[in-house]
Simulated scan of single mutants.
Amino acid sequence: MHYRSQRRSVLFAAPGLVIGALAVGAAGGFSVSPAEIIALIEKPHLLVAVLFIGAFAGITVEQALSRVRRQAWRAKNRSRWQEGPPTNIASGPWVPTSIPNSPKRPDAAEQLRIVMGSSFTIQPLLNKSEARVFRELDRLVISCNPTWQVMAQVSLGEILRSKDANAFSCINAKRVDLLLVDGNCQPRHAIEYQGGAHHQGAAAARDAVKKEALRRAGIGYFEVVAGQTTPSDLKRLVDKLVDKPELPKCSSR
């Protein structure tokens, strides 16, 4: 009776085992005949071993196929990734791009090496039109007050200071064409020469920045316009801006 009940339980489980064997065999790429399955049913321990081997083989085959498909996809799309991210954000794929770091400023030794390997030429401080205005302005200023001087192409970073680092960086590299300084070398008035190409591009905006910074520092700002300012106009401007020298006081007896 015990043998019959065990045989009956195996027979009742046979349909499930048959289905499992067929499924595992199909997954592993094996063909199993019905006669072989019936023979395995008679020996349950062999059936379990076959199921285990079939499952392992199926998983191995599936992993191999997945690896092959993944390699084929990478080979097909390698050119897209090597070309870099597209310029149009809507076209994708969206690959994060790193912001390049600003180049590190070379130290003094590196700067010397770079300079020694380069060549330099002289560049005039003023163009011809600016030089004519400079000579005439310098003559008028000295004749009005010999202690005053006219400086050319003066950097605003050398005559202005600000506790606001951002504000100072806005004017540090800017220059004025001509600067009038008094006998104590104090900047008093800036004079800009406006040539024919002055109002091209962002020149007017740059001059507005310089004018406002000078105004806040208490330095005058005036313009000499090519073709409009005459020598007499320039003389009147100098007489207005330059302080007259103090006359020596006579000692009383």
Results as ranks from 00 to 15, higher is better:
Asn184Met: 09
Gly218Trp: 00
Thr147Arg: 10
Arg132Gly: 11
Cys185Trp: 06
Ile219Asn: 00
Ala39Lys: 13
Leu180Ile: 14
Ser129Trp: 13
Thr121Cys: 09
Lys174Met: 12
Leu178Trp: 02
Lys104Val: 07
Gln149Glu: 10
Leu179Tyr: 01
Lys128Met: 04
Pro34Glu: 12
Arg113Met: 06
Leu137Gln: 06
Thr97Glu: 11
Trp148Arg: 12
Ile89His: 03
Leu156Val: 01
Gln111Ser: 06
Arg236Tyr: 07
Leu160Cys: 08
Glu223Pro: 04
Pro231Asn: 11
Gln153Ala: 02
Arg253Lys: 08
Glu110Trp: 03
Ala26Gln: 14
Ile191Asp: 01
Gly220Glu: 00
Val24Ala: 11
Ala152Ser: 14
Arg7Val: 13
Arg132Lys: 14
Asp239Pro: 14
Ala35Arg: 09
Glu136Ile: 05
Asn166Pro: 00
Glu192Asp: 00
Ala167Gly: 04
Gln123Tyr: 04
Asn77Thr: 04
Leu178Val: 05
Asp177Pro: 00
Ser33His: 13
Gly28Lys: 05
Ser102Arg: 11
Val18Phe: 04
Val150His: 06
Ala131Phe: 11
Arg80Pro: 05
Arg135Tyr: 08
Ala90Gln: 09
Asn184Tyr: 09
Gln200Val: 11
Pro100Met: 02
Ala152Cys: 11
Arg74His: 03
Val154Asn: 02
Glu83Val: 12
Phe168Cys: 01
Lys43Thr: 15
Arg175Tyr: 01
Gly218Ile: 02
Ile114Gln: 07
Val224Glu: 03
Pro86Arg: 15
Asp233His: 12
Ser119Leu: 12
Asn101Val: 06
Ala202Thr: 05
Glu212Cys: 03
Gln123His: 08
Ile159Cys: 04
His45Pro: 00
Ala165His: 14
Gln71Asn: 07
His198Leu: 03
Val154His: 04
Ala167Arg: 05
Pro34Lys: 15
Leu237Ile: 02
Asp243Glu: 13
Ala14Lys: 05
Leu51Gln: 09
Trp94Lys: 06
Ser102Glu: 07
Leu125Tyr: 00
Val10Tyr: 06
Pro93Ser: 02
Val225Met: 06
Gly218His: 02
Ser98Lys: 13
Val48Thr: 08
Ala75Val: 03
Leu178Asp: 03
Gly201Val: 03
Gly196Tyr: 02
Leu180Ser: 06
Gly227Trp: 04
Val133Leu: 10
Arg8Lys: 14
Arg132Ile: 14
Pro34Asp: 13
Phe222Trp: 08
Ile122Gly: 01
Thr121Leu: 07
Ala165Asp: 08
Ala190Ile: 00
Val32Leu: 15
Arg215Thr: 07
Lys43Met: 07
Lys104Glu: 12
Val225Ala: 11
